[in-house]
Design a protein around this nucleic acid. Structure first.
Lengths: 190, 190
DNA sequence: TGTACATCAGTGAACGCGCGTTCACTGATGTAC
DNA sequence: TGTACATCAGTGAACGCGCGTTCACTGATGTAC
């Protein structure tokens, strides 16, 4: 097979990022090879470097895309809720729902790679920006009870982190339930 | 240099686990090679396999040791406090204090490795047991406000996780502060 | 106590494997006339 | 519209490097007589 059209090539590039985003979130960045990604598209590894300078450059884009999707998802939840407090509680509720592994929260999915030495600078800064963005979105426009919202954010991430790392021991599910009911109770008392 | 005495060999074995525990916590399991560890003892990589079957076997022991140390540290904090609620607040407070990187909380330090595909079964089960143990220790013997304690545990881990992954952006420090003051406030109102 | 032998902790070089990356090549696409 | 040429997306083999692990070997330690 020879050359693709320019338009086709651009589509392929996007598809690489999309596939990478899903594979990385499901298996972890370091467990997914460039070859894995290209194979999942029915292509060979060599062509990858016609689109990206390095794997790190791809990770950067995959991280950015993942955070964008998560951000849109959260925005959709918030839109369906009334005030900002209810929105936070709804996000927590959704956050603990089982989702396909390739849609794992990017804050959790890419943390292992970002924390390791092998993480490139591009991926790190994209992660930083994405995490901050989700945080700001969660806090929303409720400066009055900001401290409480911060705690709930930490609790949500913490419980999600434990579930992700230990894949659902019983006690972790209890922690998630406690966080969820606390989030909704806080809302009710506002 | 030839053979060491039996006693010396046992000491060396312990020292390997100790060094590994520190290096793994500081740089991450996958960033530290068997050769790194042995070199830090002034030895060569080959001798490692006289003590351990595999790197995974070492990781298992390093994880166990790390959790043991963390557990003892928490116990020391709890002993200095009055009731169980105060103990939890004190642990949160200590948890956010800056510590040498080679003493990073094992729940955070080994999470990336455990979550990845490359993690061996030995390391995983040791991690699982250690995390559960620390959780039980945090909750302590206060069944009356267990749900609140669970939330604070999740918040503590979540804020610590963010700090570990993002190494201290300003907003993360704010989250830590919010969790800490909430933990102590909860205690006061009990 | 001294001697001969077996054991085995540690050495250092080499192996094997996986993965990121490179490179010469192919042939369809795009372009200039 | 047709032809000749340049471009370049994708191929597939190979390279280079790092790391976990193996192995023949060394020489001090431990043991049997």
């Amino acid at each position: 097979m020879g050359r693709s059209s320019h338009e086709q090539a651009l589509q392929n590039r996007s598809k690489i990022v999309d596939r990478a985003s899903k594979l990385f979130r499901k298996f972890g960045v370091d467990s997914v090879t460039v070859s894995d990604i290209m194979k999942s598209m029915g292509m060979t590894a060599g062509g990858f470097y016609k689109h990206f300078d390095s794997k790190d450059a791809l990770v950067r884009e995959a991280v950015t895309l993942s955070f964008e999707q998560a951000s849109n998802f959260w925005a959709g939840i918030a839109e369906g809720s009334g005030n900002a407090g209810v929105a936070s509680a709804s996000i927590v509720q959704q956050y603990f729902k089982r989702r396909p592994p390739d849609q794992t929260c990017p804050i959790l999915a890419f943390a292992g790679h970002v924390a390791s030495e092998s993480a490139g600078p591009l991926a790190c800064s994209a992660y930083r920006a994405g995490a901050k963005r989700l945080f700001a979105q969660f806090i929303g426009k409720q400066p009055e009870c900001k401290q409480n919202a911060e705690v709930m954010f930490a609790a949500m991430i913490g419980a999600g982190f434990l579930a992700h790392t230990l894949n659902d021991d019983k006690w972790v599910r209890a922690v998630q339930a406690a966080v969820e009911t606390t989030a909704t109770r806080n809302t009710a008392s506002d």
